[in-house]
């Protein structure tokens, strides 16, 4: 069995591309879990929602409002979708999640799973679960780039670079700034941070909004690559949870590195042994759980 190095590199690149999405989503999950102690099962639904805000903004919002010329283009969607979905997240945190703090993790998981089902069900009513293509890919990102070993779609390269920038900006914000120090401290001992005069309940709300907005941003970025479907988040979130488990709950760098690495491993498996491509992540998860139950980058 001869597999060309080129094929492996090509799949590794495409895998890295998927991995960047895993990284962005698991990052949000890790930040939310750290401060809220909630396993946010609705994360995939917010990712899906981000893609739908982009799709609806481009193709449907104008006609609905009686202004057929109104189109929210891709660039505006990158800004607006995270804001809209982030605000929805804030609303959900204030009205629903807030009642669960101090209870077992299970309750938060059940509630957010319910929220995910409601959102998916709602969109399944109106949209094809097989997916609707997003027609708004900017012209400037059409075509391919020659990477030497392969021709890589320009848009995918753009999505990869932007995701990496967002991941590392988030890492920098949390690990290197004053605000990040407050967030890390709040994750460890929220009551003491509050006793120092920090409005921790507000911090929690904003953190949830931020994590959810990150998922929506990833959703917009994904829209031109994958079809926009009510189930796009549900498909992805399972792998993302595996990423978080492998990387270690609550570790920022762990989430980023693990997301990228697993995307690549998944891609390479597609050429080396295709039948295992969709299970390799879970095999790794099982192995990591056996050897390091807290995850590769987890503490304790």
């Amino acid at each position: 069995m001869a597999i060309s190095a080129n094929a492996i590199l090509t799949q590794a690149m495409l895998g890295l591309n998927n991995g960047a999405f895993y990284a962005m989503l698991s990052l949000g999950l890790a930040v939310i879990f750290g401060l809220l102690n909630i396993v946010n099962f609705a994360h995939g639904a917010f990712y899906m929602l981000g893609a739908f805000v982009a799709l609806i903004g481009l193709t449907q919002l104008g006609p609905w409002l009686g202004m057929p010329d109104l189109q929210i283009n891709f660039w505006w969607a990158l800004l607006i979708a995270p804001l809209v979905v982030g605000l929805l997240g804030i609303l959900i945190e204030r009205t629903l999640l807030r009642r669960l703090y101090g209870l077992d993790h299970l309750y938060g998981l059940l509630l957010t799973f319910g929220v995910a089902l409601v959102l998916q069900g709602f969109f399944t009513n109106f949209y094809n679960t097989a997916g609707t293509p997003y027609p708004g890919k900017p012209e400037i990102l059409d075509g391919v780039v020659n990477l030497g070993f392969m021709y890589f779609p320009k848009y995918r390269l753009f999505a990869l670079v932007v995701s990496l920038l967002v991941c590392f900006a988030t890492w920098y914000l949390i690990e290197r700034t004053k605000l990040g120090a407050i967030l890390r401290a709040g994750t460890e001992k929220p009551k003491l941070v509050e006793a120092f005069g920090v409005n921790v309940p507000l911090l929690i709300t904003l953190t949830y909004g931020f994590g959810v907005a990150l998922a929506a941003f990833a959703g917009v970025l994904a829209a031109p690559i994958y079809a926009v479907s009510p189930l796009m988040g549900a498909d992805l979130i399972i792998v993302v949870f595996a990423v978080v488990v492998i990387g270690g709950m609550g570790s920022i760098m762990g989430a980023i590195v693990t997301g990228l690495a697993l995307g690549m491993i998944e891609g390479v498996t597609k050429v080396v042994y295709p039948p295992a491509a969709s299970t390799v992540v879970f095999l790794i998860m099982a192995l990591v759980l056996l050897v390091r139950p807290a995850g590769l980058f987890g503490k304790e």
Binding site: K191, E194, A195, F196, G197, V198, N199, V200, P201
Partner: peptide
């Protein structure tokens, strides 16, 4: 007062 206001 909530805890975070007392420090102030």
């Amino acid at each position: 007062l909530p805890t975070h206001k007392i420090a102030h």
